[in-house]
């Protein structure tokens, strides 16, 4: 439950901070959320990856569906990717990776009680 909550919290906070701060602020969000809420290291990575990934997937999908893939198809050609779907996958993966690494670091650095 805490894990799911972490993912949702990272996703929502990421979307919110990005309206004011640069794109990499998602890493800060993932880091702080896992730093505060903790969890096993590997889970921190997953929470960050899925949280930021979810945020980016939803935002990108909203744009892409309304746009009928005009832009994503062009960007796919630009980056020599086979189709617009792959551009979406690459986008979400990069966001997820940044969030995951930051989340993992946060989980590991959380002060452990009683030590």
């Amino acid at each position: 439950m805490k894990f799911i909550l972490q993912i949702i919290l990272i996703a929502i906070l990421s979307a919110a901070v990005e309206f004011i701060l640069p794109w990499w602020s998602v890493a800060v969000v993932a880091f702080i959320v896992t730093l505060v809420m903790g969890g096993k290291g590997g889970r921190g990575f997953l929470a960050g990856f899925l949280g930021v990934g979810l945020c980016w997937l939803v935002v990108a999908l909203c744009h892409d569906v309304a746009n009928e893939h005009i832009l994503s198809a062009r960007m796919a050609v630009l980056f020599k990717l086979p189709n617009y779907g792959m551009f979406m996958v690459v986008t979400v993966f990069i966001g997820g990776l940044i969030g995951g690494l930051a989340g993992w670091a946060g989980a590991l650095l959380k002060p452990v009680k009683g030590r």
Binding site: A60, A66, S72
Partner: peptide
């Protein structure tokens, strides 16, 4: 970045 990057131009 889907929020501020190229996706915002879709």
């Amino acid at each position: 970045d889907p929020v501020n990057g190229c996706w915002a131009n879709a």
